[in-house]
Design a protein around this nucleic acid. Sequence first.
DNA 1: TAGAAACCTTGACGCTGCGGCAGGGTCAAG
DNA 2: CTTGACCCTGCCGCAGCGTCAAGGTTTCTA
Lengths: 249, 249
Amino acid sequence: MRIGELAALAGVTTRAVRHYHHQGLLPEPPRLANGYRVYGVRQAVALARIRRLTELGLGLDEVRDVLADDAGAELAVVLRELDTDLATQETEIRRRRARLGELLAQAEAGTLPAEGPVSPALAELLGGLPVTDSPSAAKDRAHLTLMAGNGQSDQVLRALAPMTRDPAVLALYERIDALADASRDDPRIGPLADELAAAVPDAVLAAIPAQGPVAAAGAYGEAMLADFAPAQAAVVRRVMELLAARMER
Amino acid sequence: MRIGELAALAGVTTRAVRHYHHQGLLPEPPRLANGYRVYGVRQAVALARIRRLTELGLGLDEVRDVLADDAGAELAVVLRELDTDLATQETEIRRRRARLGELLAQAEAGTLPAEGPVSPALAELLGGLPVTDSPSAAKDRAHLTLMAGNGQSDQVLRALAPMTRDPAVLALYERIDALADASRDDPRIGPLADELAAAVPDAVLAAIPAQGPVAAAGAYGEAMLADFAPAQAAVVRRVMELLAARMER
DNA sequence: TAGAAACCTTGACGCTGCGGCAGGGTCAAG
DNA sequence: CTTGACCCTGCCGCAGCGTCAAGGTTTCTA
């Protein structure tokens, strides 16, 4: 037999056969004068066996191990490993499909957030927000989306829900917007910060795992502040101080 | 923010961030004088979005498409494709796990064929065979294993089952073995071929899809014959002729 | 009997999503 | 001044082949 016939017999491509030769899975057969490989029944049997193993999902090096080992013990071990591996893959796929199902449902309902697919809890929160074009509201959404990315923040998000239903919050956002061109010592800063801090429910602070001075510290905090105009940044800083003080108690 | 802080914020590695830059998923940010990348909130938001998409299982180029397309239409399309894709993967994994379950059961029962994992029908057939060290019996097993590899051969295998329970077959194998050193025109060849052909049930021939002169034609047939001693090959050839003649009718 | 189609040969690159390493520079703290 | 923790670019590696490239051979067909 030549390589094409062998390959057809085993249901693989000639390329695969040569690959197995190269990997040492299948010994190189003798050659004709013209260089063609000539295969016998032995090789065909060996190749069929390789194919059955790879079809199960074994890697080529595992196949090599199994073939090298005369007893069947190795095979059983590898198969068991493979099964647990496939089991985890299966649950993983199922988890992703569940997420996909939610997202597709949102897509059909037209309630997919502009931020792209986010966690269910966050999607609900964002979905409850009134439509507004306030720049600081947009920043808040972005900030929330980022913070919600790090996993277990469901409690915080649930605690935030009441704020989304408070019509007074919109007005607060607009008061922040109004400070876009204000100076660093504008008299509106202090009162606005007080009201903002007051608008945050205790439940939110309670749900935040006390990881230093809230989340706005560090390099991200600075980047966030840099994203605001000076007077607005002053407000944010002040709010953070007030909230931190409240968390102390 | 520098790249490490950004990466930690989004829950990815710095290597991944640079990879996204390289792939054009995330624009390169400005640099400090020392060459360090400096990121702002915008980039963090973008990165978080990329990560959410890749976590769903999207490829990086799909992510790029989704990000490039402002409307949400693209996203829905990609998600649907992904879902069907995952669905096929899931059934595929389940099929393989089912196979693995059978094989593991066989392994525990110690009934795993030496040929490695084979189709259930073949495993049953081989399992029913009496233990023998007849070389021609071994060749027959090998031949069967090969032929059974090409899929829908269950019917043939079932039709062969009666032969495995016929104690007279063992004697026939031994008569083939006895011809190992015989000459091409040994007088035992004819009668043995007649009896072998007669031992093959009609049901087997009926189940073989008439693909030319049985399966022993072509390059594989020659290789198989070359695997036998001359007198044995003569027997096999004669049996094939007889069976082919029977299939004609 | 020629020419085309179908095989065969070796060798090298492509794909996915980064990980890891080499071989540096930068910066803050002790 | 050193140490350690960052940062930079760039290239190889990974699994299992698919896919050219650039030939030579065999075999079928006109």
